[in-house]
Design a protein around this nucleic acid. Structure first.
Lengths: 339, 339
DNA sequence: TTGTACGCGTTATCAT
DNA sequence: ATGATAACGCGTACAA
């Protein structure tokens, strides 16, 4: 059931069948009909494996992300899939589970032709290698685009698509400051994540700009998980001078924080305000609805994937980040601090 | 930078290089060293595309699921990935967004050699085709295993791995009945989903067994989404004889239901009890923590994938469902009805 | 417009 | 233990 069988049955050469499939206009209608009929009869389906091999293209793109469970990525993936469908790519997903991987684990995917390119979504690994070999074995830079996350200086050849995390975090902090808060805590993600570091830096600069000191007890690592954030929150609540507001580096952690605050018998926002980041679909249905920073997730996905496609096609997509706009969404989890 | 270059540089034949890669023990150590060195120097990486082509195997498996955003699938995917890594498969993910697809859209993936097999996770599509052609063009049944979802009778050739949804739903309903509830509502998923229909049937049979009538106003479609469940809940709350408990076909919908109940100024569980299904990681941190049915998600993923691997290898995996055990997790969202 | 024939990089078979 | 060579299915340059 290969192209040969179809050719034989249709009484034409395999070249004609191939042409029928790839540029039908180059085949006479009468011949087309014969081929069409033969394909129908044999139930022939072109062997994608052979086709890709011949074309030297996998038509596959790997998306690396920390955890598929995070609803935040659902939106980004939607954007990626939209473009992938348009451009004829299938998406392979690899979950890092927040683990670090050597950089060539990624580049090798391309060099060994398992995929044509790679999207790195909020994946910290390459950013940990201060001395990373950004060029591959052949001295070539594989098509890689980073989404959501910032890119370390030494990896500047790689383009990224993201919001201005520092600015957004600063705005969220300013919102709390504007409400009258002075003791504002920050639950960060993983120390290794630039994304989180950028948000922390935004928080710190907003505090500094308002002339507010940041106690080192107020900045705790939430490890980007529900559980991590719960532990972090417990520590914050145990502080003598308890913070009146907690800004979490993402909504997932904000959910964990809210849980612990309630467990401690405190009310949100009357006793403590909570602000998140990402505006996942649960943010609005929490009790109370969560104030957070919205990111244009589908747009990030689309732009990231589109840029990757151009890179795969050999186009020069330049380096540097492409910044998309964020938006502070004020809901009911933030209010003035208690007297 | 192909196997030829390595062979030339090492002064051996391509066959030897191939052997070095695939069964090193069949190569003399001295030769191995030469090849190793040549590979190092050239930076050669085997062309996966060519290898798969030659082997007639994609080493790819497609997982079809309604929505990656659902935290429930995160656990199932973890199980799938574990086995996939062991067996050397990469996972392609396709999101249906709850849309229906023709059955051959899936089977063609295998026949056109885009992948070696398919996992259908809670995906309704094949179950809608009463007259589905289960055998492919060549009359062969492609390797497909269904996870979480039940399989319609006409598709019985396909195996599945799942909990006993009807039984589990009955137990959850019995739990509410045991607390003294009589007016128990059910928010179902999509009418087309067998999974949801099984749960509905479990609910109905438990009610019937307890001698409780089910008003048709009490069974509403939540479309498996937050929004759908919210609309459904609003309708339930507007009923003259308002239900004292709502059983939701999954946790996602339970989250939506809880939101609307609170918006209406009602308390959970004092005014209304809520029970979900799945025990996603958010269930425990909701306010109040959600009573729900836990599924062994990783185990489902593992078993599903393992069965698929055997099917791909040509093993006979039989048909019929493989039932894994569920567990009712009672938390604080369910209590006795108000007087 | 159609057919012939080669090559893509690898694995596998068969000699040596 | 190693080498020569034939496939795998498809696309395409070139010839007809």
């Amino acid at each position: 059931m290969s192209i040969k069988d179809v050719a034989k049955l249709a009484g034409v050469s395999i070249a004609t069948v191939s042409r029928y499939l790839n540029s039908p206009e180059a085949v006479r209608e009468k011949t087309r009909k014969k081929v069409r009929e033969a394909i129908r009869q044999t139930g022939y389906a072109p062997n994608t494996l052979a086709r890709n091999f011949r074309r030297g293209k996998t038509s596959l793109v790997v998306v690396v992300l920390p955890s598929v469970g995070d609803p935040f990525f659902a939106g980004v993936m939607r954007g990626i899939w939209r473009v992938a469908d348009e451009e004829g790519y299938s998406i392979l997903i690899r979950e890092t589970q927040f683990n670090t991987h050597a950089f060539d684990e990624y580049t090798d995917i391309v060099f060994s032709k398992q995929a044509d390119g790679i999207v790195l979504l909020a994946s910290i690994s390459p950013f940990m290698q201060g001395d990373a070999e950004v060029t591959g074995k052949g001295g070539r830079v594989p098509p890689i685009v980073v989404g959501c996350e910032a890119v370390a200086p030494q990896l500047s050849p790689f383009p990224s698509v993201r919001v201005d995390n520092a600015r957004a975090a600063a705005e969220a902090t300013e919102h709390l400051i504007g409400l009258g808060h002075k003791r504002i805590a920050f639950i960060s993600g993983l120390a290794a994540s630039l994304l989180t570091r950028d948000r922390e830096q935004g928080y710190r600069s907003a505090m500094a700009a308002a002339g507010l000191a940041v106690s080192e007890h107020w900045v705790v690592e939430g490890r980007q998980t529900l559980e991590g954030a719960r532990a972090a929150t417990r520590r914050l609540l145990a502080l003598e001078a308890r913070p009146t507001a907690i800004f979490c580096a993402n909504d997932e952690m904000a959910m964990g924080a809210m849980r612990e605050i309630r467990r401690a018998g405190l009310r949100i926002p009357q006793d403590i305000s909570v602000v998140g980041f990402d505006d996942i679909r649960y943010a609005e249905i929490l009790d109370p609805p969560l104030t957070t920073v919205a990111q244009p997730v589908e747009e990030i996905g689309e732009r990231t994937m589109r840029r990757l496609c151009r890179a795969i096609d050999g186009g020069d997509i330049g380096a540097g980040p492409e910044i998309v706009s964020h938006r502070l969404v004020v809901r009911e989890s933030s209010a003035a601090p208690p007297k």
